[in-house]
Design a protein around this nucleic acid. Structure first.
Lengths: 70, 70
DNA sequence: GACCCATGTAAAGAGCTCTTGACAGGCACG
DNA sequence: CGTGCCTGTCAAGAGCTCTTTACATGGGTC
């Protein structure tokens, strides 16, 4: 799952630690999301999007297509 | 975390099983989300919102305020 | 009653999300 | 060199997400 967290964090001029503080999560969590170790939980993704003034789908891009059959 | 999945699913006229099929998850997963057993993962939340033509924040409402103190 | 569909729930298990604590390398500064 | 900040990573552990299988209930229909 593609994400633009680093891009918007740097635009805001924040370090990973500073962003983590604003989201009330650990620095490792921010780092893991930025380095694609795993996707954030839904509540964390919502907070991130809110913090950057974005829609969740603008910050996290899911490449998925429904089963065309059914 | 508040969510309006049931509301929009019924508006669409789908059963839990039908929605699950369209999302490629199990019926139990849809049921668990609707009955607040747990929040869906971020990719699943994005697919749900896309399927209903909504923003994620319209389907899942997070009541959270940043630590006002820093 | 027998059948089908929709919903709710449970239990076991695999894999994911997040935590704390720790260690490393890079860059800037005095 | 020593200090401080930023980033990347690892490991152990707690708790969450989702799966499959299964069972129970209620509604509608024949």
């Amino acid at each position: 799952m593609e994400n633009r967290v680093r891009e918007y964090r740097e635009q805001a001029g924040w370090s990973q630690g500073e962003l983590a503080r604003r989201l009330s999560v650990s620095r490792q969590t921010v780092n893991a999301v930025e380095t694609d170790k795993y996707d954030p939980s839904l509540p964390l993704a919502l907070r991130m999007a809110a913090l950057f003034g974005l829609e969740v789908r603008e910050l996290f891009i899911d490449h998925w297509t429904p089963e065309t059959e059914g």
